[in-house]
Write a protein that binds this DNA or RNA. Structure first.
Lengths: 219, 219, 219, 219
DNA sequence: CATGAATGAGCATTCATTCAT
DNA sequence: TATGAATGAATGCTCATTCAT
C-alpha cells in the first residue's frame, strides 16, 4: 500500500517501511472511513466526520492520507480482495452442489459480518464504479469467466441442471448482498423478526433451498 | 401556479391548477434530476448539475422547486407507485406459479426500462432511507405482509413448495433489481454479450428457471 | 410625488395626472411597506413581503414603484412632513409653557398613533440617515434653529427657566419617541400595565410634570 | 480552542481554554462586527463586511464564529452587562438626588464612549428585540422593578417629588441614549457646535438641570 | 507527528429586478 | 395593468486542502 503524497512530497518516503504505529493509525482511519463512507457515500461524507470517528484531528488524518480520495481508494482496494476471495475458493475438483452451496454461505456470511464493506461496494457500483471499473473489467471479469467455465463444465457433465453460469453468479451476488445493502428495508419489512442478525438463518435456509432446487440435475 | 414553497409562501396559490407549460417544466426538471440523483446520490448531486441537465438557470429551477430536497422528494414519491404496483398486481386468485413468474417478469422489465429509478431507490436505501423509512415501515411493509400471506396460503394449499415468503420476495427484488443497480458490473462482466439490453432475455430465462424449479411443488 | 421610472421608461408618463385608482394603489403599497420597513428595516425587508402585505404580485408592485428604494424614499419624504409639522406649530406668540406642553403632547400622540412612522425614522437615523441627511441638515436644522430662537427669546424674557433650547428639543424628541421606538421594551418592562395604549397616559402625566417643573421660571 | 459550534461539533473542545491569539482574534472580529451591525443592523450587515473590517477572510472569520448570528449574540451578551451595570449601581442607601444624577451621568458617558453599543441595542429593540426579548422580560424587568421600588421608597419618604418611577427611568434612558442613537441628527442640528464630543457637556448640564428640577421635592 | 489557523472553491438559497405576454 | 417566468448578483455557510509551527 503506497504511502500518501504528503510523505513523498516531503521527500521523507519510508520506502515501504512503515512503523507499526503508522500502520495502526492508518488502520484506525480506514475503519472510521469505512463506517462513514458506507453510511453517507463518498460525496456525502466529510473528512471531519472521518477524523471525528477516528478520534484525531483533520490535519493529522491528512498526514496519513493526503486526500479524501486516497482513503476511499485504499478502502476499495482492500475491499476487492474480500470480494474476490470467496469466488476464488470455488474448487473445480469439488462436488458441484457443495461448492455452490458453500459459496452462497460464504457470501451470506460476508453480508452479515461485513455489511459496511458491501454497502461501500454497492455505492461505488451505483455511481458507475468510476474508481474500480478497470478492476472489474479486468481482474473480476477474468475470475468470473474462469469460474463460469468451471460451472459450465459441471453442467456439461450433467452434474448441474444447465443454466447460464454468469446469471447464476449474478443471482447469488444479488440475493446474498441484498441482506447487507438493503439492510434497512429488510429489517423494516421483517420488523421484530429481524432483531439482531437472526434473519440471516432464515435467509440461508431459503437460499440454499432455492438454488439447490434450481440447480439439482433431473434424474 | 407553482406548488413549491417559495410560492405557497405568499398564500396566493391556485390550489393545484398548474399550467401545461409549468407541468412540462417540472417534468423536465424531474427528468434531469432523476438522471443526476441516480448517478451521484442526493448529497453528491448539485442543483447546478440538475439545472444544466434541464437546460435552465439555477434560480429558474428553484422557481419551480424551492429546495433541492423538494425535487428529490417528488422523485421518490412518484417512484413509490412504480415500486409498489407490480407487487400489488399479484392476484391471490390467480395461478400461483404464473403469478410469481409474472411478478418476476414485471420487476425485470422495470429494471430494464427504469434503471435510473431503481438506482435512485437503491441509493436512498443504502444511505439508510432517511427520507422514505416511514413509507417502507408503513405502506410497503403492509403490502408485503399481505402478499406474503397470499403466498403462504398457496404453500399451505400445496400449490407451492414451502419456503419463507418474505425471503422469497427479497430474492426476487434482489435478483431483478440487480440488473439495474449493478448495471455497470453486469455489463463489464458480460462484456460484448451485454450490448444493448439483450442480456435481459438471458436474465429472464435464468430467473424463471431458478424460481420455477425452486418453487414447483413436489408431487 | 413623481411617477416611478417604469412610467418614464415606457414613455407613457402621465405628466402629473394620476388616476384615482393609481393613487389608491400607491397608497396601499406605501401602507404595506411602512408596516414591513418599520418592522425589519430597509435591508431586512423584501419586496415579496411588501407585495404580500399589499395583496398584490411583486411585478405589479414594481409597476408602481420601479425600485425598492423608491418606495422607501416615498415613505421617508411624506414622513418628514409629519415630523416637522408639530414643531412648526409652536407659536412664538403663544404662552411659552402652554406651547411647549402642547408640543410634548402632540409628539406623544404621534408616538401612540404613528409608531411605525417613528420607527421608520429611527431606523433611518440609526443607519446614519443616508437618504435624509440633506433634509436634516437643511430643512430640519433651519426649523429647529428658528424655534430654538423662539424658546431662547422666552427664556431671555424670563418666561422660562433658562437652559439650552436645542437640548430641550432633543429631550422632548427623545422622551416622546421612546414610547414608539422602544415600544417592545417599554411594554416588556411595564408588563401587564401596558396592555393597549394605557401607559401613554402615565407617560403624558410624567412628561408634563418633568418638563413643567424643569422649565417653570423661578419666582 | 474555539468556542464556536463548528468546533464544539466534534466534541473535542478544550473547555474554555482559549489561547491569547484566539482571544485577540475574537476581539478583533467583535470590534469589527460591532461597527458593522451598529451601522446596518443585523440583516443589513454581511459577513463579508465584517470580515473586511476585521481584515480577514470570510471563512477564517467563520472559523472563530460559526454563524453570523453567533457574532451578534456575543455582542448582545456582553452588551447587556454594560447596559445593566449603571442601573445596578443605584444605591438604595445613597442620597436620592445624587444617585439619580450619577445615574444620568453614567448613562450619558456610555452614550459618549460606547455609541455603537447603544445603536446596536437600539437596532435590536427597533426590530422587535427578537434575540433579547427574554433577557428584557426577565433580567432587565426584574432589575427595573427593583430599582423602581427603591425610587418609590424615596418618594414615599418625601425625598423626591413623586412621579412614576418607571417613566422616570424611561426618560433617563431616552434622553441619554438619544445622543448615541440619533447622533447624526444631533450633530447635523448642532452643526459646528457638535464637533468632537463637546456637546455632551451641554447635554449633561441640561439633563442634570431638567431632572433635578423635576425631581426636587417641594419643601 | 500533531494541530491550530487559514483559504479558495463550491453550494444552496435569496432577492431585486427584468422580460414577455 | 397585471402577472408568470426568468436571471445576475449576492449571501450565509461548507469543505477539502494547505500552511506554519
Amino acid at each position: 500500500m503506497p504511502l500518501s503524497k504528503t510523505h513523498s512530497k516531503n521527500g521523507r518516503t519510508n520506502k515501504g517501511r512503515e512503523s507499526r504505529i503508522q500502520r495502526e493509525k492508518r488502520e484506525l482511519i480506514l475503519g472510521a472511513a469505512l463506517e462513514v463512507f458506507a453510511a453517507h457515500g463518498f460525496r456525502g461524507s466529510t473528512i471531519d466526520q472521518i477524523a471525528d470517528a477516528a478520534g484525531m484531528s483533520k490535519p493529522n488524518l491528512l498526514y496519513y492520507f493526503a486526500r479524501k480520495e486516497d482513503i476511499h481508494q485504499s478502502l476499495i482496494e482492500r475491499l476487492m480482495d474480500t470480494w474476490l476471495d470467496p469466488l476464488k475458493a470455488i474448487d473445480a475438483n469439488g462436488d458441484p452442489m457443495a461448492e455452490i452451496c458453500a459459496y452462497i454461505k460464504r457470501k451470506l456470511e460476508i453480508s452479515r459480518d461485513f455489511p459496511k464493506e458491501s454497502r461501500l461496494f454497492a455505492n461505488e457500483i451505483l455511481q458507475g464504479a468510476p474508481r474500480i471499473i478497470s478492476m472489474i473489467e479486468g481482474e473480476l471479469k477474468t475470475l468470473v469467466d474462469e469460474k463460469a467455465n468451471v460451472i459450465q463444465g459441471w453442467m456439461d457433465a450433467g452434474k448441474l441442471n444447465p443454466c447460464d453460469p454468469h446469471h447464476l453468479l449474478f443471482s447469488i451476488w444479488a440475493t446474498t448482498q441484498h441482506y447487507a445493502d438493503f439492510d434497512v428495508q429488510v429489517r423494516a419489512v421483517l420488523a421484530r423478526d429481524a432483531q439482531g442478525d437472526t434473519h440471516f438463518e432464515g435467509a440461508a435456509t431459503f437460499l440454499e433451498n432455492l438454488f439447490c432446487k434450481g440447480l439439482a440435475p433431473r434424474n
